[in-house]
Amino acid sequence: MKNKLWELRKNQKLTQEELAQLIGVSRQAINAIEKEKFDPSLPTAFKMSKLFKMSIEELFFFE
């Protein structure tokens, strides 16, 4: 699954560590999600969509 996490994080000027703390996961998890090696759980995806004020479908999508 593809996502816009890296782009959104950069726009918000957040480090991986800061985003990880806001979402409540490890920095490694943020890195793995950004590199599209790992798909987050639904609660994590909801937290991200709330933080970046966009729908889950806009944040995560199939190509």
């Binding site: 409540g24 996961v25 490890s26 490694q28 998890a29 793995a32 790992f38 987050p40 759980s41 994590t44």
Partner: peptide, 9 residues
Amino acid sequence: KTYDELQKR
């Protein structure tokens, strides 16, 4: 219990 989803996986 303290592990996040990636660590658990």
